[in-house]
Simulated assay, not measured.
Amino acid sequence: MPASKDMPSTIKRSPKKAQETYAKTHDSAVEEYGEGERAHRTAFASLKHSFEKSGDHWEPKEKKGPSDAKAAGGRDTKARTAGGVDANASKQHLLEQARKLQISGRSRMTKSELVDAIEKANASSTRKARGK
C-alpha cells in the first residue's frame, strides 16, 4: 500500500518534504520487507534523520543526523527513543522548542528533563489534533 494513503496524521500536517521523505522510504521498505511495522519504523527512522517532532507535526532539524541514542545505535541497541524529539540538539535549541510548546519551568530543567517534557507536550498536542 502506498504510504501516502496510510500516512500518520502528524506527517500529513507537516511540510511536503517530510511527507515525501516518509512516503518514499516507506514504499521502499515495503518492497524490501513487506507491509507492516518494520516498514513504518524504517520510514520514521528516515524522517527523524532530517526532521523533529514539534507539537502535532514535524519540522526540519537545524542539522541532519541521528535524533537520539536509539537512532545512533541502530536496531539492536537497548537505548530508548525520544519520540521524535531531537535529543542530540543543543540545550538552547531544546529550550526554544519548550518555549514554543509553552512548557512551564523549562529554564530550570536539565537537558534530559527538557527532552522528556517536549516529548510529553508533543504527545499531548498530537492527541488534541487527532480529536478535532
Rank of each mutant, 00 (worst) to 15 (best):
M1W: 04
P2G: 09
P2T: 09
P2A: 07
A3W: 01
S4W: 07
S4T: 13
D6K: 15
D6S: 14
D6E: 08
P8L: 05
S9E: 01
S9W: 08
T10N: 05
I11S: 03
K12G: 00
R13I: 06
R13D: 02
S14W: 12
P15K: 12
K16Q: 12
K16L: 07
Q19R: 14
Q19K: 12
E20A: 08
T21Y: 04
T21Q: 06
Y22T: 04
K24R: 11
T25Y: 01
T25N: 05
H26P: 00
D27R: 06
S28R: 08
S28V: 05
E31H: 07
E31D: 02
E31Q: 10
E32S: 14
E32A: 12
G34D: 01
G36Q: 00
E37M: 09
R38N: 00
R38Y: 08
A39E: 01
R41P: 02
A43Q: 07
A45V: 01
S50K: 05
S50M: 01
S50E: 06
F51H: 07
F51E: 03
E52S: 03
E52N: 07
E52H: 13
K53F: 02
K53N: 10
G55D: 01
D56A: 15
H57T: 04
W58A: 00
K61E: 02
K61W: 05
K61C: 01
E62C: 12
E62N: 12
K64C: 03
G65C: 05
G65F: 06
P66C: 10
A69N: 04
K70W: 07
A72R: 14
A72V: 15
G73E: 00
G73Y: 08
G74E: 00
R75L: 07
R75W: 13
K78F: 06
K78Y: 08
A79K: 10
R80W: 06
T81L: 00
G83M: 06
G84H: 14
D86Y: 14
N88G: 11
A89Q: 00
Q92K: 15
Q92G: 12
Q92H: 11
L95W: 14
E96N: 10
Q97Y: 03
A98Q: 02
G105F: 15
R106I: 05
S107M: 07
S107V: 04
R108M: 08
R108S: 13
M109K: 15
T110H: 13
K111F: 14
S112C: 06
E113P: 02
E113F: 07
L114E: 01
L114F: 13
V115Q: 06
D116E: 10
A117E: 10
E119M: 13
E119L: 11
K120M: 04
N122L: 04
N122A: 12
S124Q: 13
S125V: 05
R127G: 06
R127N: 13
R127V: 13
K128V: 15
K128M: 11
K128Q: 15
A129V: 11
R130Q: 13
G131T: 09
G131V: 11
G131F: 05
K132R: 15
K132L: 03
